[in-house]
């Protein structure tokens, strides 16, 4: 007899515990309507931990000392990590037409530092690598490296591993795929992996946007912080963008997601186009 491993219902009090913790520490807003989502995402974790109720699960998560690992798992579970290769391509177009030309000077070799803030599984960072490498093929060189940060260790691990299913790269032009991807020898796996040369360009690091300051010792020329703010409420959004913009060089660029805006926030940023901003002197 097959037994269905059905999830258990989450009590409102459990949800409130999670909500309070996540909103304060991760910034992601969790209105009541998200209960189903949280419930279904955490049911897996609850099963994995092997307890019957969410109450027990949360006690486990928040237990001093022992819960740390599961806390990270819980955060992993409530973050939404949707991402894609070549997502919102206008930004990459802007990069190659407006940003990179000023750096491509053979006689004055520059170092471009980019930051994929809220990188999820790394597609954004690797797409940027592909775009930059393509640009370098036809233009005098510069150096670059990319810092990719996220709060979720799960996605960071996937990003570092840089293995993706064939479907996820289906839309990348064949030329680009040939240049920057390896495919699995085992045909049943049907996966691809980013070539080591590009993987070397990207450094993955855990960073929580809610931290009081970001432990990064240098400033960036280009920052992607796309589709992260939409999960935060307005005051948090402003705080996060303020902290991020401190890490952008004057004249550097910030790209936000397609529905995000910094309208009526007092920030040292000048809008160059929809969702494209430039850091100005504060």
């Amino acid at each position: 007899m097959i037994e269905l491993s059905t999830g258990v219902k989450m009590k409102d009090s459990d949800f409130r515990r999670i909500k309070e913790y996540i909103e304060n520490e991760v910034g992601i807003k969790l209105p009541y309507i998200k209960k189903t989502m949280v419930e279904s995402r955490l049911n897996k974790r609850r099963n994995a931990v092997g307890v019957q109720t969410f109450n027990e699960y949360l006690d486990h998560v928040f237990a001093p000392g022992v819960g740390k690992v599961e806390l990270i798992n819980m955060i992993d579970a409530v973050t939404t990590n949707k991402t894609d290769f070549f997502r919102e391509p206008e930004h990459f177009h802007f990069l190659t037409t407006q940003v990179l030309p000023s750096y491509a000077d053979k006689n004055n070799l520059k170092y471009i530092k980019l930051w994929s803030a809220g990188c999820s599984t790394g597609e954004e960072a690797y797409t940027t690598c592909m775009v930059l490498n393509d640009y370098l093929r036809s233009h005098p060189s510069f150096h670059y490296n990319i810092l990719a940060t996220d709060i979720s260790t799960e996605v960071l691990r996937k990003g570092m591993n840089a293995v993706y299913s064939m479907e996820r790269v289906a839309k990348i032009p064949l030329e680009t795929k040939k240049r920057y991807l390896l495919k699995s020898k085992d045909k049943t796996k049907n996966t691809v992996r980013i070539i080591p040369e590009l993987r070397k360009k990207v450094t993955f690091q855990q960073l929580n946007f809610m931290d009081d300051y970001y432990d990064i010792s240098y400033k960036f020329d280009v920052v992607f912080c796309r589709n992260v703010l939409i999960y935060f409420n307005k005051p948090t959004q402003e705080k996060v963008i303020r902290k991020i913009s401190r890490k952008i060089k004057t004249g550097g660029y910030l790209f936000l997601g397609h529905s995000e805006t910094i309208i009526d926030m007092k920030l040292p940023l000048k809008q160059l186009g929809p969702t494209i901003f430039q850091k100005i002197d504060a």
Binding site: K183, S184, K185, R193, T203, F204, N208
Partner: peptide
């Protein structure tokens, strides 16, 4: 609870590139 993540961060948790689950040996030219 957050100290886990934070202390990790402050100790410069640039996650190690060699923790790969996969190896390039299993891959070939696209």
């Amino acid at each position: 609870h957050m100290i886990a993540a934070k202390s990790k961060k402050s100790s410069g948790v640039v996650l190690d590139m060699d923790v790969d689950d996969d190896s390039d040996e299993e891959y070939e030219q696209f």
